[in-house]
């Protein structure tokens, strides 16, 4: 294996010139999907945690079941079920929707659990004091309990969001044209491994800032014992 051959297979300028638009398009899909999944997952997860705080037995039971199931079943299995199994009961969706929905549900399950742990950790006196000043249950929840709970959840939630946004690569398994899928098909079309390298660089451009953000939140919002 000499250097010339290595450069030809992995850093081929001609291949880069031909296929960079594909990779960039894939990156756009990855980013779009990542942002959508993060927003949906966090919002749904937080709402579920708040509903659970209402302490209506039947509702809490369903929320716990939902969170447990989606934390135990691998995300790729969820995607497969939505994409390959649901059409059998006349519910078809595109690869984008299937990936978005699956990952959002998985993130929502984790976010619910993290937010719930945060809500529980806020001392009861806070909610009681808020209620006794005349705030309604919802007001005390939204303006007193949740803001304090969120501070504690920032670090674990960020880590989870990072893990889930990276899972957007799973969409390639059901044919979503995100960065991994595009670089894989560019690889087979060009018969050259350079697109894989380009895809790796694309991933790094997207996710290195996210990883660094995670590091920062971990030190900034460290849980103080």
């Amino acid at each position: 294996m000499d250097l010339q051959a290595l450069i030809f297979s992995f850093f081929n300028l001609e291949v880069i010139r031909d296929y960079w638009p594909d990779i960039v398009r894939g990156m756009a899909v990855t980013i779009e999907l990542g942002v959508l999944v993060s927003l949906t997952g966090i919002v749904v997860g937080l709402l579920l945690a708040i509903v659970r705080a209402l302490q209506i037995k039947a509702l809490s039971f369903f929320i716990v079941c939902f969170a447990d199931i989606l934390r135990a079943v691998p995300p790729l299995v969820v995607i497969m079920i939505l994409f390959f199994a649901f059409p059998y009961i006349q519910v078809s969706m595109s690869a984008f929707v299937a990936t978005w929905l699956s990952l959002s549900l998985v993130l929502a399950a984790f976010a619910e659990e993290i937010c719930w742990a945060g809500i529980v950790s806020v001392p009861k006196g806070q909610a009681e004091a808020a209620r006794s000043t005349g705030l309604s249950w919802w007001q005390s929840m939204c303006f007193v309990v949740v803001p304090q709970a969120l501070r504690l959840t920032v670090a674990p939630l960020t880590n989870r969001v990072i893990a889930i946004t990276k899972s957007t690569a799973l969409g390639s398994v059901v044919g979503l044209s995100e960065v991994l899928n595009n670089s894989q098909s560019a690889m087979s079309m060009s018969g050259n491994a350079t697109p894989l390298m380009m895809g790796a660089v694309g991933c790094l451009i997207i996710f290195i800032p996210v990883v660094l953000l995670g590091r920062w939140t971990e030190t900034r919002f460290r849980w103080k014992q």
């Binding site: 990276k166 398994v173 991994l180 991933c203 790094l204 996710f207 290195i208 990883v211």
Partner: peptide
């Protein structure tokens, strides 16, 4: 550490 945390495992 950061490079391999940034690349998706499937990748």
């Amino acid at each position: 550490i950061d490079v391999f945390r940034a690349l998706p495992p499937l990748y």
